[in-house]
Design a protein around this nucleic acid. Structure first.
Lengths: 238, 238
DNA sequence: ACCTGAACACCGTTCAAGT
DNA sequence: ACCTGAACACCGTTCAAGT
């Protein structure tokens, strides 16, 4: 940046006309910044700067930062691959859908952190819910369990993606946990001491796949949720 | 506040001597602010103000805000009730421990949000891990599955607490989801349309309890995680 | 060693003023 | 209707200076 850059007023006519603002343009710019700078680098001011305007201008299209986050998340969820119907058994298709969901959250830097605070419920999120519901029902799960199951599965996918995302961004990653476990005394925490390596074993990917199978298994095999657990003392026995 | 308040310089001698700073004092003050103001109201500057000093003073005891978060979380986890050994069958004790964990995160306003970004691994967190490991092993789960299971269970508890916490703080809560579902067209999303009420049914508490049972069931009943899933093609059949 | 005020480089949001 | 600059009320972190 030259010292006298300010005096060089370049006519707007000389550059491609500034793209008019719109929700879509703003969301695209914001996703670009998220990709390049990570979650910590995303701000309304930066988005505005990328669009060659001031932050105040964005308030014509957004009511606040949270709304931008929701729009960004749903736009990004458009990349989740919905498996072809009947191409594979329902379980494999369910796994594939969840893994694609996980991958999308995982690949886009910082996206999972947005997802945590936002509860996706835009059109792309609804498409995913619809498919998940269908796959669980194909697996013989009743309506109520399927509904709650969709919630549980999406919450898990979002959480694990965010956890790994945060670890990646904050640099140090697992080191804090590693150090805490290394300092564990065999007398105070015998089980942790014995299982140190197990606790740290496995990549994020294989752990996530295992956990998804555990949850799916639990949903398919478990009891139906009690309709309205008002008097909880009685129903304890299975 | 009177207009001339600044001229009334009150001698420090007239008030109880300012408590000397220490990690403990800082963490306690920070937890107080979290309780009163919620996660959005917590800042180093406010903590410092509550301790009658400037933010810079805290850097003698903390290397940054993240460290304060970690200390706060572990201090708060001291309130989690570890069930008496052998008082009940292992499953009931496991449930009780997880519900106490959930309750602690849920009751302290804003705490769950800290927990999401922090991965608890202080002494109180380790105590909880040790017990969870023990309970899963009592249930016949092998070492590796127990270790991964502890991770999965604590991640879920933290996530569900944070989700409900965020809903509570951001005021509107489920309304956005409710509106999205209300606008769903029967032709585009037949399953969601049919399951609208199921998706919104149940309080946070009963859903969380159901989900915990699902996960426990999955861990106890599921296959052991593959040691190193290098060649994933072969092991597909159960 | 501990504490402090001031500064630096940021935030989201509002609002009066311009076109 | 849309856009803008300036202002308001905040942030975390650093640093030179004081005790």
């Amino acid at each position: 940046m030259e010292p006298d850059a300010r005096s060089e007023i370049v006519s707007r006519r000389n550059r491609p006309a500034k793209a008019p603002l719109s929700r879509e343009v703003i969301v695209a710019a914001a996703l670009g910044i998220l990709e390049r700078e990570g979650a910590a680098g995303l701000s309304l001011r930066r988005v505005a700067a990328a669009l060659d305007t001031g932050a105040a201008s964005l308030y014509v299209y957004l009511s606040n930062l949270d709304e931008l986050h929701a729009l960004m998340l749903d736009a990004a969820l458009g990349a989740v691959k919905l498996p072809e119907a009947r191409a594979l058994p329902w379980r494999a298709r369910l796994r594939a859908l969840l893994l694609s969901y996980l991958l999308v959250l995982h690949e886009r830097r910082g996206l999972a952190q947005l997802a945590l605070a936002t509860t996706a419920c835009g059109p792309n999120a609804l498409r995913i819910w619809e498919r998940l519901m269908g796959l669980l029902k194909e697996g013989g799960v009743d309506d109520l369990k399927a509904a709650w199951g969709v919630d549980l599965l999406t919450l898990y996918v979002t959480s694990i993606a965010a956890e790994q995302n945060i670890r990646r961004e904050s640099g140090q990653g697992l080191e804090r946990v590693q150090k805490a476990l290394a300092a564990v005394a065999a007398e105070e925490f015998p089980l942790l001491f014995a299982a140190k390596s197990a606790l740290l074993s496995g990549g994020g990917r294989s752990r996530a796949e295992w956990a998804l199978d555990v949850i799916i298994e639990g949903i398919v095999g478990g009891r139906p949720p009690a309709a309205v657990p008002r008097t909880s003392a009685k129903r304890r026995r299975r």
